[in-house]
């Protein structure tokens, strides 16, 4: 079978898989961003207990493998009465894992905002909530965008692991097609190229664009 024929025959399945991967990517990203923000802010809290919770969360998720976490969420959580469908379990595991990495970026980003900004907001008698939301976070956001770009690529790559709990993403489809055709180079090669295009020509340019927009908004470009 020529490669063109191969694509004609299995193209739709690769496409379906890509859509599932994209879904996993967006949902996991959203979850990771929310968790990173919460855990990052908690880690900067003055309250030792709140800080402690964030530290434990971050260290557990950064200290073990995503695959272990994924299996744990999918196979062990049901024993505690919480059964997640595989699709949900997939992006929840990926999002919680990357959220722990993102929390450190959020913390670093907030700490990189000059002290004068805090003082000025204080002088204008802004409430702590308002100060964080309107003054500190937007600036922190710009500072941490470049590392977030890398993190989102990591996240995209990590979504491939959800195939191991049989979410029918790109990786899963590739495995299935390989199992029935034994055309490994074509199958896995195609999947590799799709992931590459996704990362290099969609995620990275989008993050670059976002960096530019945000910098302009803050009058830095």
């Amino acid at each position: 079978m020529s490669y063109i024929e191969f694509l004609k025959e299995y193209g739709p399945r690769f496409w379906d898989g890509t859509l599932v991967t994209a879904g996993q990517f967006f949902l996991a990203s959203a979850l990771a961003i929310v968790i990173a923000l919460i855990a990052g802010l908690m880690k900067l809290s003055r309250n030792g207990l709140i800080r402690g919770i964030a530290v434990v969360y971050i260290e557990i998720f950064r200290g073990t493998s995503l695959l272990v976490q994924l299996y744990w969420i999918f196979f062990v959580l049901p024993l505690f009465g919480l059964t997640l469908p595989k699709f949900t379990a997939g992006f929840v595991a990926v999002g919680m894992n990357l959220g722990a990495y993102g929390a450190e970026l959020v913390r670093g980003g907030i700490q990189s905002v000059p002290k004068g900004q805090w003082e000025a907001a204080y002088a204008l008698s802004m409430s702590p909530m308002r100060r964080m939301w309107r003054i500190i976070l937007p600036q922190a956001f710009v500072n941490m965008l470049p590392p977030w770009g890398n993190l989102l690529i990591e996240l995209l790559k990590n979504t491939a692991l959800v195939a191991l709990i049989s979410v029918s993403d790109l990786m899963f489809e590739a495995k299935q097609i390989n199992g029935s055709t034994f055309l490994s180079a074509q199958t896995f090669g195609t999947a590799l190229i799709i992931y590459y295009v996704f990362a290099r020509f969609i995620v990275t340019p989008f993050m670059r664009w976002l960096e530019l927009v945000m910098r302009r908004k803050l009058g830095r470009a």
Binding site: I153, L156, K157, N158, T159, A160, L161, A163, L164, M171, A174, K175, N178, F182, L183, S184, A185, F188, G189, A191, L192, Y195, Y196, A199, R200
Partner: peptide
Amino acid sequence: STPLILQIFFVYYVGPQ
């Protein structure tokens, strides 16, 4: 920018082909 797990499969299965 590609998943390690896919690379593992690639190396393992493409050789025999």
